Amino acid sequence: MENFWFYTKLGLEHVLDLAAYDHILFLMALVIPFSLRMWKKILTLVTVFTITHCISLALSVYKVVEVDVAWIEFLIPVTILLTALFNLWDSLKEGSVLSFQLQAVATGFFGLIHGFGFSNYFKMLMAGEDEKFNPLLGFATGIEISQIIVITAVLAVAAILEMGLKLPRKYFVIGTTSIVILITIPMIIDTWPG
């Protein structure tokens, strides 16, 4: 059990590490278009993302699937950019059920990519260790706790700006999404594997 909590702490720190903010940016981009009233949509997207990144994390750790680390490091900021661009496109028109379904499918695919990214870090931590299940479960738990923290923070900032400062939702979405895009473009350039 001690091992579990140790790896939970590492998973939590890995996502919340401001020096490695790619996962925070993705979560921001994912929930920026939503308010607390849309909690079912947020829960759906976060659940899809969680399931898929846990699947690819486990597949990679147990060496069922192996991927090129350089391409994963490049694709992670691409997932952030595509999610942010979708937000801009969707905020300029009325959202539809179809666009949410498309977003859910894309989020699942992006979750697979992020899971492979998590596995790179986890495998470095586990070098030489034989027993992987409890550490993997702890690490994944830490990731999930950190995701809840990030999502709650984004929703709280949105609520403060909208209710407290009376900022229209559309301006919040366009403004914050634009910031995410500006931060992400240099990440894509820096991680290009070619």
Rank of each mutant, 00 (worst) to 15 (best):
L36T: 10
L36S: 10
L36R: 15
R37L: 14
R37K: 14
R37Q: 14
R37F: 09
M38V: 00
M38K: 05
M38P: 03
W39I: 14
W39P: 07
K40H: 11
K40P: 07
K41R: 14
K41H: 12
K41P: 01
I42S: 04
I42G: 06
L43S: 12
L43N: 10
L43G: 08
T44Y: 04
T44D: 01
T44L: 15
L45F: 08
T47D: 00
V48N: 08
V48D: 00
V48G: 01
F49W: 09
F49H: 07
T50C: 04
I51E: 01
T52W: 07
T52L: 11
H53S: 03
H53I: 11
C54M: 14
S56Y: 06
L57S: 15
L59S: 06
S60R: 05
S60A: 12
S60L: 08
V61L: 11
V61A: 15
V61K: 05
Y62P: 12
Y62F: 15
K63D: 15
K63G: 08
V67A: 10
D68K: 07
D68E: 11
W71H: 13
W71M: 07
F74P: 02
L75G: 05
I76D: 10
P77L: 08
P77E: 03
V78N: 09
V78T: 06
T79H: 03
I80A: 05
I80E: 04
L81K: 01
L81F: 14
A84C: 09
A84P: 02
A84T: 05
L85T: 01
F86P: 00
F86R: 12
L88Y: 06
W89A: 03
W89C: 11
W89P: 00
W89H: 13
D90Y: 12
S91L: 07
L92T: 02
L92Y: 12
E94P: 08
E94L: 08
G95I: 10
G95A: 10
G95N: 13
S96V: 03
S96P: 06
V97E: 14
F100Y: 15
Q101G: 13
Q103N: 12
Q103L: 11
A104P: 10
A104R: 08
A104F: 01
V105I: 15
A106P: 07
A106I: 08
G108C: 00
G111S: 01
G111A: 03
G111R: 05
L112S: 03
H114C: 13
H114Q: 13
H114L: 10
F116E: 02
F116S: 12
F116Q: 03
G117C: 07
G117E: 09
F118Q: 03
F118D: 12
F118C: 06
F118G: 04
N120L: 12
Y121G: 10
Y121H: 13
F122Y: 09
K123I: 13
K123E: 14
K123H: 03
M124C: 01
M126G: 11
M126I: 02
M126C: 02
A127C: 00
G128M: 04
E129K: 09
D130M: 05
D130S: 15
E131L: 07
N134I: 08
L136E: 04
L136Y: 02
L136A: 15
